[in-house]
Amino acid sequence: MNSTERRALAGLASLYVFRMLGLFMVLPVLSLYGSDYVGSTPALLGLALGAYGLSQAILQIPLGVLSDRWGRKPVIFLGLVVFALGSVVAAATDSVFGLIAGRLLQGAGAIAAATMALAADLTRDENRGKAMAVIGASIGVAFVLAVVLGPLVAGVGGLSAIFWLTAVLALLAMLLVWRLVPNPERKERRGPQSGDFSKLLAEGSVWRLVCGVFFLHLLLTALFVPLPLLLVEQLQLPSEQHWKLYAPLMLGAFVVMLPLMRMAEKRQQVPAAMRLALLGLVFGGVALMPSVQGSWIVVCLGLFFLAFNLLEALLPAQLTRVAPEECRGAATGFYATAQFLGAFAGGSIAGILYGQGGAGLVATFILGVLVVWSISWWQLRGTRVPVASA
């Protein structure tokens, strides 16, 4: 990578860390502290956990298209302001409905599509896989930091302290984008035309990747509805010490994931690596089963996090390669819409199921989703995802 690409990637990866840190810090603590909110129930807390995904899903495509017309950075700045406002709303409320409203407003700052498109604009094709891998890794870094900081911050000031910190991080992210991320070369942006959309919608590889990220984030959010309580009950691990489990598991997953990803791209075996990761996600559901106890829960979570991180890196890299350049922002909009709609569906459905049948019912749901995902990928098996040379 040249200096411009490295500078852009450092800024955008930092943006992802700051923004996703605020979202992820809620995951390991919401089900533990959410009962303090007026009117809370397991179903409403599940809705609050995934609510940001609904507004993200609604706005990713419009803002992705808007970034094709206005430029990426103005849309990113606007989204960060809205995200900060949503964090303030969530921090100031003592009602579960106010919490849901704040999370919805957080999600309205839907900049993932514009950010991924900007990363693609600022990197050459031969470096795009590396760039998306770094961004995917930055999401994982944010997750590791979040599971360490979330319980600690919540232990000091409750969930409101997490949301106040999230608002500050959003403002710092704006500063990073302004100072570090260069403006892409201004091409003649005619914006996507109807024919471009037809070409995009007819591309089977795009839909394979879109379906994949939907299911991936549905599973992640569904897992974290019962998981914090399960760790307290089954492993006798207090909430403020959950980071001692999450952090080494995630760091270990990265150490193993990176060579697997490089090997898959170098040998042009990305579809095979994705199928292997899909198998690894099964262990997320297994970890929630009543028959799984003690250290086996830890083993299952480690395999799930490895599979999650591998897919988190491979999916967006392939998307930016197969999407037509003239509507890349729209393509990443579809992708990000599916990603956050999956988060909304996972949290909402798992909250209802957990209230009715406990962690075992959520485990059954997760395994059922994986069956549907496997079928959808099998039907698209004839569509080859192109891989750039390493």
Rank of each mutant, 00 (worst) to 15 (best):
A133I: 15
A110L: 13
L85G: 12
T115W: 03
R103D: 06
A84D: 00
V141Y: 02
R69P: 00
A108I: 08
I135L: 14
R124E: 13
S95L: 07
G86Y: 11
A92P: 02
A90M: 04
A92W: 09
S138A: 08
A92N: 12
A112C: 12
L78K: 04
A133H: 15
A167M: 08
V168M: 13
A92G: 02
K130C: 03
F97M: 15
A108H: 01
V88C: 11
M132T: 05
T123Y: 11
M116S: 13
V81F: 00
I76K: 06
R69N: 05
A110P: 06
G102A: 09
R124I: 09
W70T: 06
L149H: 09
S160I: 14
L122G: 04
A113K: 01
G102P: 07
G102Y: 04
F97A: 12
L85Q: 13
R69K: 10
V88I: 15
G98V: 12
L145G: 01
W70D: 00
F83V: 01
V168P: 03
G107T: 05
P74V: 05
L99Q: 09
I111S: 13
K73F: 00
S160G: 10
S160E: 12
A142R: 08
F77A: 01
T93L: 04
L99P: 01
T93P: 10
V168Y: 05
W164Q: 13
V147N: 13
A113I: 03
V156Y: 10
I100V: 15
L145A: 13
W70N: 01
E126P: 08
I111N: 10
L104Y: 02
